[in-house]
Amino acid sequence: MNMVWDRFVSNRIRELGYDVATRTMAVVFANNTRTFHAPVSYPLYASINHARFPEHLYRQAILGKIPEVSGI
């Protein structure tokens, strides 16, 4: 996996990562918990990354809707 990371996304989401080849999005929360979801489109990842409230969009569009996968 070649993950590209964006750091300091928000208070609750510390980092977001995305792998274009596998369409996998990684989320690192403030408590260092990591989750990986796939398949996630790049536009969806980008919208979460640039959202004013990324945690809300993550819960609305990803959590429970796009399956968790094993990560790195």
Score class of each variant (00 low, 15 high):
1 M>G: 12
1 M>L: 13
2 N>S: 08
2 N>H: 08
3 M>V: 14
3 M>E: 07
4 V>M: 14
5 W>T: 10
6 D>E: 12
6 D>L: 08
8 F>M: 11
10 S>P: 06
10 S>M: 07
10 S>V: 05
12 R>G: 08
14 R>Q: 15
14 R>T: 09
15 E>C: 11
16 L>D: 09
18 Y>R: 03
19 D>P: 02
19 D>C: 15
21 A>E: 13
22 T>V: 08
23 R>N: 12
23 R>M: 13
23 R>K: 15
24 T>P: 10
25 M>K: 06
25 M>R: 06
26 A>D: 10
26 A>R: 05
28 V>G: 06
29 F>M: 13
29 F>C: 04
31 N>K: 11
31 N>V: 07
31 N>Q: 10
32 N>L: 07
32 N>G: 00
34 R>V: 13
35 T>Y: 02
35 T>V: 10
36 F>A: 06
36 F>T: 02
39 P>D: 04
40 V>T: 01
40 V>Q: 06
42 Y>M: 05
45 Y>G: 01
45 Y>R: 02
46 A>L: 11
46 A>D: 14
48 I>W: 02
48 I>T: 01
49 N>R: 15
49 N>Y: 01
50 H>N: 11
50 H>Q: 10
51 A>W: 04
52 R>L: 12
53 F>R: 12
58 Y>S: 06
58 Y>W: 12
58 Y>E: 06
61 A>K: 10
63 L>V: 09
63 L>M: 10
63 L>N: 11
63 L>R: 15
64 G>R: 13
65 K>D: 09
66 I>P: 08
66 I>Y: 06
66 I>F: 08
67 P>L: 05
68 E>H: 12
68 E>D: 08
68 E>R: 14
69 V>L: 08
71 G>M: 00
72 I>C: 00
72 I>N: 07
